[in-house]
């Protein structure tokens, strides 16, 4: 047990750093994920992360694995795709999800092409797309911790309007709640969380820690707050187990954590108390009154 769970972290500093970073993100990102699921925007975070890739690729060619450059490139490209998709679908009358899909496929292709043309090898592409424990340097760790702190503070203050805006935007607007402004703040937080997860989890997998626990949480609670706690719990467990798996099985961190979180989702669908498949099968008998 000790060899399996404790020894890797005790022995290697880079694993400890990755653990601290992933735990920080586990506290903030899944809560945002819960709101994304409730808003039926589960794909948005994905699009942001994929859309960021060309920016990350260009920054990588210019400055190598320098964290601030990668973030800046990713931030700019991700915002262009997210804001551009909304504006484009409004202007052309198309459906936003279709526009988003088109843009993020384009961005993914462009990103990989840019890295290859610029002389980046397969190892670089793997690193950028799927993350690496070695990627969590001091600036990356500070960013992850800072973003998590900021996210929790904002969520604590914006909880009421976010829930109201999510549940009934028309009522909220008529009653004088500025839903649009809160929504922008929320989207900014999503972008920050995705970007800060790049180093550890990679651009393709960064969203996994945000969405999978949030989707699984639906099966553990009947209220938004309960879902948030459940999502954080699942994310924390997935981070620890994922890093252990990554170390022992020599899998990149991103896919390892996503695999564990995906397993947690599967267990939730099967055995979760709210709308889980098992509880449906077992609850043949009904209450008498």
């Amino acid at each position: 047990m000790h060899d399996l769970l404790i020894a890797p972290f005790a022995e290697f500093g880079f694993l400890r750093r990755a653990l601290v970073g992933c735990l920080a993100l586990s506290v903030s990102a899944p809560v945002l994920g819960v709101f994304l699921v409730l808003r039926r925007m589960s794909l948005t975070a994905d699009v942001l992360a994929h859309g960021a890739l060309p920016g990350v690729a260009i920054a990588f060619l210019l400055a190598g694995f320098s964290a601030p450059f990668l973030w800046f490139g990713g931030l700019v490209a991700g915002l262009v795709v997210a804001v551009g998709a909304g504006a484009l679908s409004r202007a052309t009358g198309g459906r936003e999800d279709a526009t988003l899909a088109a843009l993020y496929l384009l961005a993914l292709g462009a990103g990989v092409a840019i890295i290859s043309v610029g002389g980046g090898g397969g190892a670089d592409i793997t690193h950028i797309l799927f993350g690496s424990v070695l990627g969590v340097d001091d600036p990356a760790l500070l960013l992850m911790a800072g973003v998590a702190t900021l996210t929790l503070l904002v969520l604590a203050f914006a909880w009421r309007p976010l829930v109201l805006e999510c549940f009934d935007p028309s009522f909220a607007a008529a009653a004088g709640a500025r839903g649009g402004a809160w929504h922008l703040v929320f989207q900014a937080l999503v972008v920050l969380n995705v970007i800060s997860a790049f180093q550890a989890l990679g651009t393709l997998m960064a969203v996994g820690l945000m969405m999978l626990p949030a989707i699984a949480a639906r099966h553990w609670a009947r209220q938004v707050s309960g879902m948030a706690y459940a999502a954080v719990g699942i994310a924390v467990a997935s981070s620890v187990a994922g890093l252990v798996l990554s170390y022992h099985a020599d899998v990149p961190t991103g896919p390892a954590i996503v695999l564990i979180a995906g397993g947690a989702w599967a267990v939730s669908v099967l055995a979760g108390p709210v709308d889980g498949l098992l509880s449906r099968l077992l609850r043949r008998r009904h209450l008498a009154g």
């Binding site: 409730l38 009421r160 829930v163 109201l164 999510c166 549940f167 009934d168 028309s170 009522f171 909220a172 008529a174 009653a175 004088g176 709640a177 639906r218 609670a221 009947r222 209220q223 938004v224 309960g226 879902m227």
Partner: peptide, 27 residues
């Protein structure tokens, strides 16, 4: 202004308790 939106426009599966919905009127 108090608005009663069309019932069909509401996500009735939203995870929220009744009292919390009523408290939204305090906004």
């Amino acid at each position: 202004i108090g608005l009663l939106p069309q019932l069909a426009a509401l996500d009735r599966a939203f995870p929220i308790a009744c009292l919390d919905v009523v408290m939204q009127g305090l906004w």
